[in-house]
Design a protein around this nucleic acid. Structure first.
Lengths: 211, 211
DNA sequence: TGCGAAGAGTACCGAACGGTACGGTACAGC
DNA sequence: GCTGTACCGTACCGTTCGGTACTCTTCGCA
């Protein structure tokens, strides 16, 4: 809006290396751990190059978000003829992947960064975060739900609302608690069980088999 | 832990006024909008007094959280003989109150602050935030669930898990989206409908009336 | 009336950070 | 060999902010 929006165009390998280094610094020390001087030192590049490539600090942060989002690949949408068991397995996979993504170090650090800056400037980073990171996995879920409905495994009226309910059943308050740094909230070994339970509840609400 | 933990003891009225002013600054400008000099100017007090009262900046932030938490009053737990309709109404009230609290300006600002600082220092503020703000409303919900179970309106095994599911049905991904500054996420006029729907889904999962 | 505590207002210090400028170096193309 | 380009490393600048010190006023109290 106020500036040329960072497009999907790839950065040079050198720039990507710098961005990865920046992400690492951000994960390690939070927003205060990511300074231009520190990044230049850690990435063996000059501050001048950083400013030449990304404009200013906000441009760097936006580039980091775009770069990280470009690395997340949406799971292939194998919507071939699936039976009910496969559909349930796909939903469970999605739930598990969602929990894994949200609990990732880089994801948490970037979300913390975007949230910390959300108060002012109408949150340009927050918008980027939602559009780049969220839409992708959301689209995967939407396609999955649509396929399940078409085959009669589930029924619903509003697809968006249904997805949001599914999301709530999976994530609950885990995301915010992880963002707050609550150590007990990150238990990846329980993600499988949590995904199973969420899918079970989702079928209880929207399934067509029993009831 | 590392310092004398701020207890519930009340601050002096003068100090509370300063804390309220600090909260206002935080709401208005985010973390960067809250500086000691700015607070001193806005609250007509001296920086030296701020440091004398609260120690350092972290102490001020912790005091702000404690102060704000002390203002949130948990709804009276009217667990008298209630019928199913009343129980459902209580749950709906809880859901609506929860959405209102999470969407509040001060709550969002404090959560953003705590999340922004959660990366380092093992998130002392985050812990404070969870313990002070969350436990209270959580306790109210727990008591409500317990009463509903005792009277046979709902059934469940794990009370904590049941509460978390209820929370997920109510909040979905709204909280994080509001924290990210997504304008479309704050629609207080829809909170009533959302609370209704969440309670309906909750009963579909845990209710005993119509299987 | 004198005294001491509390606190406002201000000046100040040191450190950190964003951003810029400059010198030095490797390399590609001619 | 000459020149332009890209880039590293570093020094530098202006600003901001956390935190401290000092003065002056107010007010309670004996």
């Amino acid at each position: 809006m106020d500036q040329a929006v960072i497009a999907d165009e790839e950065f040079t390998p050198r720039q990507q290396a710098v961005l990865d280094c920046a992400l690492q610094l951000l994960v390690g020390g939070g927003e205060k751990g990511l300074t231009t001087a520190g990044l230049a030192r850690a990435a063996n590049c000059s501050k001048e190059s950083i400013y030449k490539w990304f404009g200013d600090r906000d441009g760097l942060l936006a580039a980091m978000i775009a770069h990280q989002a470009s690395k997340v690949r949406a799971g292939a949408d194998n919507a071939h003829a699936m039976d009910g068991e496969q559909f349930r397995a796909y939903l469970t996979d999605f739930a598990h992947d969602l929990l894994d993504v949200l609990a990732g170090d880089v994801s948490l650090a970037l979300n913390r960064l975007a949230i910390g800056q959300a108060s002012r400037s109408e949150s340009r980073l927050g918008r980027l975060m939602v559009e780049r990171g969220r839409r992708r996995i959301e689209a995967r879920a939407m396609a999955l739900l649509e396929a399940g409905k078409r085959r009669g495994y589930i029924r619903y009226e509003d697809r968006e609302a249904t997805y949001h309910t599914f999301y709530g059943l999976i994530v609950r308050d885990l995301h915010v608690r992880m963002l707050l740094g609550e150590a007990g909230a990150r238990r990846p070994e329980q993600f499988a069980a949590m995904a199973d339970e969420a899918v079970g509840q989702f079928f209880a609400l929207f399934g067509t088999e029993t009831e």
